[in-house]
Measured scan of single mutants.
Amino acid sequence: IRVFLPNKQRTVVNVRNGMSLHDCLMKALKVRGLQPECCAVFRLLHEHKGKKARLDWNTDAASLIGEELQV
């Protein structure tokens, strides 16, 4: 999953079965001084340019493999 972060940063996270978005993104956020409780995560909708859909931090990350997200 490719993730666009604040301050023009980005990362790619690996996903294993059973992991939530929170689990996958925790380290990437922590390294940058961010906390999931203070952030929202969105899936970028490529079929609708510029649109995005808000996701819950408990979403199964395996269902988002190959997607691009924005925090």
Rank of each mutant, 00 (worst) to 15 (best):
G18W: 00
S63F: 06
V3T: 00
L34H: 02
C38I: 05
K27Q: 13
T11F: 11
H22G: 12
R43W: 03
N17C: 14
P6E: 01
C38N: 15
L64D: 05
G66Q: 03
R2P: 05
V31L: 11
A61K: 03
A62S: 14
L64R: 01
A61S: 08
R2H: 07
T11L: 14
A61T: 02
L64Q: 05
L44D: 08
R2W: 08
G66H: 08
V71R: 02
C39K: 02
K30V: 12
L29W: 04
V31P: 05
A53T: 13
H48A: 13
A40S: 14
G33I: 03
R54D: 07
D60L: 02
R16Q: 15
H46D: 12
R54S: 13
D23H: 05
L69E: 03
H48M: 07
A61R: 04
D56K: 02
L29C: 01
A62H: 08
D23S: 09
L34K: 01
V71A: 00
V31C: 11
K30T: 14
V15F: 07
L25M: 07
K27G: 15
R2Y: 09
K51G: 14
D56Y: 06
G18N: 08
T59W: 02
R54T: 09
N58T: 09
L5Q: 06
R10C: 15
K52M: 14
K49Y: 08
E67Q: 13
E37C: 05
G33P: 01
G18P: 02
H48C: 12
N7I: 10
R16A: 13
D23T: 13
L45W: 10
V31W: 06
M26S: 15
V13I: 10
T59N: 02
L44Q: 11
A40W: 09
K51T: 12
K27D: 13
S63D: 10
R43S: 05
V12M: 10
G18T: 01
A61W: 04
N17R: 13
K30M: 12
K8S: 11
H22R: 15
G33T: 05
Q9I: 11
K27F: 08
Q35S: 15
M19P: 00
P36D: 02
Q9T: 07
R10F: 10
K52Q: 15
D56A: 08
V3M: 04
R10I: 12
C39L: 02
V15Q: 00
K27N: 07
V71T: 04
N58K: 10
G50S: 10
D23F: 02
G50C: 13
R2I: 15
I65P: 04
N7A: 04
G18M: 00
Q70M: 10
A62E: 14
V71K: 00
K51W: 09
N17M: 11
F42T: 01
R54H: 10
P36S: 07
R16I: 12
V3S: 00
C39V: 05
L44M: 14
L69H: 07
S20F: 05
D60I: 09
L29A: 00
L69C: 04
E68R: 06
N17I: 07
M26T: 12
N17L: 07
P36E: 08
N14P: 13
V31D: 15
V31F: 10
K51A: 12
F4G: 08
H46Q: 11
F42H: 01
V31N: 10
G18F: 00
D60M: 10
H46V: 09
E68I: 10
V41P: 02
M19S: 10
C38L: 11
L5P: 00
P6Y: 06
L29K: 05
F42K: 00
V13S: 01
V12D: 06
H46A: 10
C38H: 14
N17G: 12
N14R: 11
V71D: 05
L64E: 00
K52Y: 14
Q9H: 07
L45P: 14
N58P: 00
N14M: 11
N58Q: 11
K49P: 12
A62Y: 11
G33L: 01
H48F: 11
P6A: 00
H22N: 06
C38M: 15
T59A: 10
K51I: 08
D60W: 01
S63E: 10
V15R: 03
W57M: 04
V15C: 02
A40P: 01
F4T: 14
V41I: 08
Q70A: 06
P36I: 05
C39Y: 04
H46N: 13
E67M: 07
K52F: 13
E67T: 10
R2C: 06
A28E: 15
H22S: 13
A40R: 12
R10W: 15
F4M: 14
F4L: 15
V41C: 09
G66C: 03
V41L: 06
M26G: 14
A62Q: 13
